[in-house]
């Protein structure tokens, strides 16, 4: 194999990488972004839920909730060291737990979470706790819980907020999305949206 063949191949590779960088690295994302901005501006900018000038979060990103007046989501493993705001203040971000569901450490965490959930929901007695309330999601910031996990909390939320169980259930229904064609994916409740409605910040769910 002569050096000339290799040299020529490297030159062609450099030319191809240059075109690809321009076309696939710059034009392609710009084209997608341009269509996105025009047709789906809310989604393209992160599905941010905004009310009265305050940005309360993304509909696609969960937050930790433990207040009695709020619906609780999946347990989070939060971090406040990765990101800082403009004034150097820590910003919250999340990651998965990465524990094997067959490990002793996992068993212990589940037991602790079950105890904490049950202690906050005396009206539920010894009923089994829906699994998504005691397991960490794949991303660590699952924005949803299951309808079973939402229903489990209705009594506690109703008591803490003074709203009737029917009112709480009506809010949950508004924030519930169905599976695609009834079978693909899962029925799920957006926890941040429920809590913003419970707090009276939101009157309706955005963009649905």
């Amino acid at each position: 194999m002569s050096g000339r063949v290799i040299g020529k191949a490297l030159a062609r590779a450099a030319a191809l990488v240059a075109i690809a960088t321009l076309a696939l690295g710059v034009l392609y994302p710009f084209a997608v972004g341009a269509v996105g901005r025009m047709a789906f501006p809310w989604q393209a900018q992160g599905s941010i839920i905004e009310a009265d000038g305050v940005k309360y979060g993304s509909a696609q990103v969960g937050q930790p909730f433990s207040d009695d007046t709020h619906m609780w989501g999946r347990p989070t493993v939060a971090d406040a060291t990765l990101f800082q705001g403009a004034d150097g203040q820590p910003l919250l971000w999340y990651g998965p737990d990465n524990l094997s569901p067959a490990s002793q450490q996992f068993a212990q965490r589940v037991e602790e979470r079950v105890a904490a959930v049950r202690a906050a929901h005396p009206d539920r007695g010894n009923a089994p706790v829906p699994s998504d309330l005691v397991t960490v999601s794949g991303s660590g910031f699952d924005p949803h819980i299951s309808p079973a996990a939402a229903e489990y909390q209705v009594g506690r939320i109703s008591q803490a907020t003074g709203r009737s169980p029917q009112e709480v259930r009506a809010i949950i229904r508004q924030c519930t999305e169905k599976p695609l064609l009834g079978v693909i994916g899962q029925e799920r409740v957006n926890v941040l949206e429920v809590n913003l409605m419970l707090d009276g910040v939101l009157e309706a769910v955005p963009n649905r």
């Binding site: 999946r74 998965p96 737990d97 990465n98 524990l99 569901p101 067959a102 490990s103 002793q104 996992f106 068993a107 589940v110 037991e111 079950v114 049950r118 010894n126 009923a127 089994p128 706790v129 829906p130 699994s131 998504d132 005691v134 397991t135 960490v136 999601s137 794949g138 991303s139 699952d142 949803h144 819980i145 299951s146 309808p147 079973a148 996990a149 229903e151 899962q186 029925e187 799920r188």
Partner: peptide, 25 residues
């Protein structure tokens, strides 16, 4: 470890059945 002697519900009524650790709702 997840079942926790029946304290955790892993059935499929109104939720996804099975091992939801590391999975999204």
């Amino acid at each position: 470890q997840l079942l926790d002697d029946g304290a955790v519900y892993v059935g499929g009524v109104e939720q996804s059945a099975g091992n939801m650790e590391g999975k999204e709702c």
